[in-house]
Structures are given as C-alpha cells and as structure tokens.
C-alpha cells in the first residue's frame, strides 16, 4: 500500500491505495466522485477523461499513485457554485447528449480543446479531430460538435 496526496477539485486528499489502483477507481470508489465514468476500460472511449494538471487524460489508463502530488479536476469541479460551466450549458443548449454517459468525458475533453485554442481560432474540423479520443453511441456527434463550438465561444475563444 502506498500513501498518496492528490489535490482533487481544489481539495487535498490524503489516502492509502494499492499500487494497482487505477486513478478512476480512486476517484469513484474512494472519493465517491462518480461523475467520471468508466465506459470501455480499454483506453478507447474517453468517458473517464479528467484533467491532470490542467490537461485532459484518461483516468482509466493511469494509476492513482502516478497522480501523487498532482492536481486533478473532475466533472464535479468544473462549475462554480450551483450553476453550470459555460461548456456544460452549451451541451444542454445544443442537445449534445442523449443518454449522457459519455458527457462528463466529452465536457472535460471540450475544455481541453477550448484551452488549447484560446489564442487562435477554433473551427469545426479541429473540434472533430480533437474529439477523436471520445466515443458517443447516441448522438451522431453533430450536437456535441455544435456544443463544443458554442461553449468555447462563450468562454471567449474565437470561433470560425
């Protein structure tokens, strides 16, 4: 067992974990942050996407011990107070979901897209390319692409 200290959504959590505990298992089972989903468990679907030090990664393909001393943001940590983050609001506005299972990962990836393009211009082709790590089996993606563009725009990113 290894003792780790991980800052999750701004709060420092000290915990003891087995070395083989995945980061997503730590988040869901020890911290009860069940917004981060496990879709495929094989690094394909992106439902488990969280931010590690501000960058989207798949938490099913990382050990909790690798996050020791680092900062994690989950879907529970993106909105201020009780409202929705502009990116979450855009998913609602654009019908960027049906069953909603992929949505937390989609939003975390979308926030990464907005962050990477905050100083240039974002277009639909780029959004589609950079959503390659997230699978949705309901929507056909059009609503999601629209939501990412609207959310980024409402966050101040120039959108083509």
């Amino acid at each position: 067992m290894t003792t780790i200290s991980v800052t999750v959504n701004g709060t420092v959590h000290k915990a003891t974990v087995e070395a083989r505990t995945l980061l997503v298992e730590f988040l869901r089972q020890q911290l009860n942050l069940t917004g981060t989903h496990v879709g495929c468990d094989t690094s394909q679907c992106g439902a488990c996407t969280i931010h590690l030090n501000g960058r989207p990664v798949k938490s099913c393909t990382m050990l909790a011990v690798q996050a020791d001393g680092q900062a994690v943001t989950t879907i529970e940590g993106v909105a201020k107070d009780d409202g929705m983050h502009p990116m979450q609001a855009a998913f609602k506005e654009c019908h960027g979901l049906q069953c909603g299972f992929c949505t937390p990962g989609m939003v975390m990836t979308a926030l990464g897209i907005a962050e990477r393009h905050k100083t240039d211009q974002l277009d639909e082709t780029t959004v589609r390319h950079e959503l390659e790590g997230n699978l949705c089996r309901c929507t056909g993606y059009q609503g999601i692409v629209n939501a990412v563009l609207l959310g980024a725009k409402n966050m101040g990113v120039k959108v083509a």
Partner: peptide, 9 residues
Amino acid sequence: IGDPQVRNR
C-alpha cells in the same frame, strides 16, 4: 499519434 488524451501521457 492517438488522440489528445493519449498525446498528453
């Protein structure tokens, strides 16, 4: 290579 999440790790 891969997708954005993979490229970050």
